[in-house]
Design a protein around this nucleic acid. Structure first.
Lengths: 335, 335
DNA sequence: GAAAATGTTGTAAACGATTGCGGATTTTGC
DNA sequence: GCAAAATCCGCAATCGTTTACAACATTTTC
């Protein structure tokens, strides 16, 4: 059939009009007369023409895609966010390119490269630790930060981290717990620090004080949750409840303590953060703070599109709500 | 500083050469004289020039990206594969576009759209149920199937599904189990069917027969594993062991039976499939069949690149090895 | 020392679309 | 019935590269 892929010229010839008219029929149908429009559409149909995105993008001085820069692609936390991003990008004709910042040697250089590469009309950045010089360059494409954020005034979409921590700790307190520990995220990460601060504030507010060795260093990974469990086991007086800065760490923690025969929640209560899918299927199902990942992705994409459209480098940061999901990993402590 | 983004013209002017020479310096440095080369590179440096990918792609009749078509982006199973794909694509200058096939209304049309969209030089398809007419079109870009495969002779990269099933069932048999059930993947899916067949063959080979209600319909999701558990609970004579066609279903199953106070593996043994990260942290840690997801991604990407390079629509299908990972979810049955 | 081979660079034509401008043609207003 | 306005469409330039071809200079070969 189609020996070659049809170009706009072929369509124009077939419909007996100029390429300009074909182009207009496809992009602004209202300006072309009904009869011609139909002729053109018929020709498009018969030739199986699809506009060549590359040529179109070149002429329109854009790329038609945005890049999501993710610290670690293998982390399932991001997949749902990507789905959210894609769901808004695709309908308006943008493609989603993905790249992991931590895969290569020096992440900052790679960010710079992406910023200048003219490969995308905008970026969504999931790694707040990156702060390339290139972000200062006024000629760069728009960037929005998702989840994390930076001191600079880059627009961002993030969740109510402090409130999430407060909800978690408050819930434990309300259930009678007074010995409440915490497993942190990686040092230097804004998420970790905000959640840690939220934990401290919530305790202080209620007049509860805790020894320093009840906060365990983690890095959001299951392994680090497991490591925290080892430390917890060695404590002479253990906290009766833990607020974990990520669900994954809660899973890691629960895995090792259960393996030791310790019961959750009877012997230790746990609250996670994120509400990743698996934690609802554990036994016990994990009580956690829900982050609406799809919504984060959607809002970040929408914000970025607006910025691209408006040709601006700034925009309104957005906060998405968290929610406490009560399941079975928290026990009431008898007074 | 840089008021406008520099073009190849700017560089040429600055270096006092033609644009052709600049282009050559950047792509085939060997053909330009050392002195000119250095002058050009210096000019590139001073102007901060980066080649405009869109223009380059247009001229070279390519797009510089490949699309990964994934049934469900929110499924963490794929993220590691994507990481693998990206790790081979990125170094050679290809971008990775992602799209989910099941997001919109009619997946087949969307596949066709992607095939014709001239948005990518090739596709990696993770959904073997799609069989668009467009695949017949000789003008389409190369496609490789990953994980799944089709009756057509599309090249594919997949794991040893049958052998995986055989390993799982064999292990259960060796541990003394004779009442072995199965939770299947979605109907009509090649993976489901191959694993189911592998399960049946392994049993037949050992002269074990099982009633039909010991194979439970699932769809790879945790929820379906949980549903299978409900059915299993209602059986009057229950299998003492289950081979689950996915880890996620094993997790779902384990969640509900443990919730009912049934012990794994003392009361029921489980073997999963995939070795997703979380199952190593459960209590008990899940015995499973490992699929090398990163490797699948890498090989699929490499295969596709070769096909793009060679301009062919076919290529050598590849099988990647599986491995039995013994953990704590299988108990020995006393003779 | 002429002819041939080799090496280096520039000229200019693509690649396939979009769009400002202006010329026809039709409609509207009076 | 005629000028003005509106509508529709084509011409041709343009986006930023790459690359066939030709031109010229320099060596090599015999």
């Amino acid at each position: 059939m189609d020996k070659k892929i049809a170009t706009i010229q072929d369509v124009a010839a077939r419909a007996g009009v100029s390429t300009a008219t074909v182009s207009r029929t496809l992009s602004k149908p209202s300006v072309v007369a009904k009869a011609t429009r139909e002729a053109v559409l018929a020709a498009v149909d018969r030739t199986g023409y699809r506009v060549n995105a590359t040529a179109s993008n070149l002429r329109r001085q854009r790329t038609g895609s945005v890049i999501a820069l993710i610290p670690n692609l293998a982390n399932p936390f991001f997949s749902q966010i990507l789905a959210g991003i894609n769901s808004v990008l695709h309908p308006v004709g943008y493609g989603l390119l993905i790249a992991d910042t931590q895969a290569g040697p020096n992440p900052e250089d790679r960010l710079s490269a992406y910023l200048q590469s003219s490969m995308a009309d905008g970026l969504i950045l999931f790694d707040g630790t990156l702060s390339a010089e290139a972000l200062k360059n006024p000629g760069r494409p728009p960037v929005v930060l998702a989840c994390e954020w930076m001191d600079d005034d880059l627009p961002s979409v993030r969740t109510e981290n402090a409130r999430g921590a407060a909800l978690a700790v408050g819930h434990l307190f309300d259930m009678g717990h007074r010995r409440i520990g915490h497993i942190t995220g990686p040092q230097g990460n804004v998420l970790s620090e905000t959640r840690l601060a939220g934990y401290r504030d919530a305790l202080a507010e209620r007049g509860v004080s805790t020894p320093p060795d009840w906060v365990f260093d983690g890095d959001f990974s299951m392994d680090s949750g497991a490591a925290a469990a080892q430390k917890w086991l060695q404590l002479e007086t253990r906290p009766t409840a833990l607020f974990c800065a990520s669900d994954e760490m809660a899973v890691g923690f629960m895995g090792v303590v259960q393996h030791r025969g310790i019961r959750v929640p009877e012997d230790v209560s746990l609250v996670g953060f994120d509400n990743i899918e698996v934690v609802g299927h554990l036994s016990p199902a994990l009580t956690t703070i829900r982050q609406r990942r799809t919504q984060i992705g959607e809002q970040a994409a929408r914000l970025l599109l607006d910025m691209i459209e408006a040709g601006t480098l700034t925009g309104p940061s957005q906060i998405v709500e968290v929610e406490l999901i009560c399941r079975d990993s928290v026990a009431r402590v008898p007074a």
